[in-house]
């Protein structure tokens, strides 16, 4: 079943057109990897999907409801945000909240949950990402990998229908990447729907079932993951994958 359907998404910064008509389908349970060279618009695309950036035009179908990206209403955006979550490249944890506080903040303020109820859920998701020993630690007391796992727990706490990840491991030291990818792998195996911008080709190969390759603000190739890596159609994609392999990815 199609959960998210994007048609003709366009976005400019001033006179610079960054997204030139993007189409995308995500079904419930999909893990979609978004690949592409730097500057191709991957981050901007993801940010448009959660309205951190406002797209200029396009249609956005979520859960069967169709929206016109050119004229989104405040309550439409709030409604979509309630059902989605975002994991940032540089974690963006609330510096003045503990790990548990980070996870419960949105539940208490936005969802009007009671504190005990929010904390029950908070502990549950922190346990899930392997941080049961770190409830009371502040972000500055955690390693990068731990911070990103808190961020993933914060995303999970709101029980989203899809999680957007923007290069979740790019800001991490190499030895910390594995712990974050393992958490994501587990989520995928449980059927969580995820849209992941990543440069981790092996992760994309193993975990994603669909791949979207972006270049220059457009989708150059979109295919099932097996097909994409076994026999990419576009010469440009083959070249991109070869360069990444040569750089030990």
């Amino acid at each position: 079943m199609s959960l998210l359907e994007i048609r003709g998404l366009r976005k400019s910064f001033g006179s610079l057109q960054v997204l030139k008509g993007i189409d995308l389908d995500v079904n419930t349970g999909d893990v979609v990897a978004v690949l592409g060279p730097s500057g191709s618009g991957k981050t901007t695309f993801l940010r448009c999907l959660n309205f951190l950036e406002r797209a200029d035009e396009g249609s956005y179908t979520f859960d069967g409801k169709v929206f016109d990206l050119g004229k989104m209403k405040k309550q439409d955006i709030a409604g979509i945000r309630r059902k989605t979550a975002f994991v940032f490249q540089n974690f963006n944890l609330f510096a003045n909240r503990t790990a548990l506080g980070n996870v419960t903040e949105g539940l208490i303020t936005a969802r009007k949950m009671t504190k005990p109820e929010a904390e029950r859920i908070g502990r549950e998701v922190l346990d899930k990402v392997g941080l049961s020993e770190r409830y009371d630690y502040y972000p500055e007391q955690l390693s990068g990998g731990q911070q990103q796992r808190v961020a993933i727990a914060r995303a999970l706490a709101t029980d989203p229908e899809i999680i957007f990840f923007d290069e979740p491991t790019s800001a991490l030291d190499p030895e910390l990447i594995g712990e974050v990818l393992n958490v994501m792998r587990e989520l995928a195996s449980e059927g969580m729907t995820m849209l992941v911008v990543t440069h981790e080709i092996s992760f994309a190969k193993q975990v994603s079932n669909r791949v979207v390759f972006m270049e220059n603000g457009m989708v150059l190739e979109a295919a099932d993951s097996g097909e994409f890596f076994a026999a990419p159609k576009e010469a440009r994609v083959r070249e991109f994958l070869r360069t990444l392999r040569e750089h030990g990815n």
Binding site: N50, F51, L52, A78, R81, R82, T84, A85, F86, F88, N90, F91, N92, L93, F94, A95, E105, G106, T109, A110, R111, A151, R154, A155, T158
Partner: peptide, 10 residues
Amino acid sequence: GQIEAGYCVG
């Protein structure tokens, strides 16, 4: 980024 994260959790 913390403001954006706040928006994202509603």
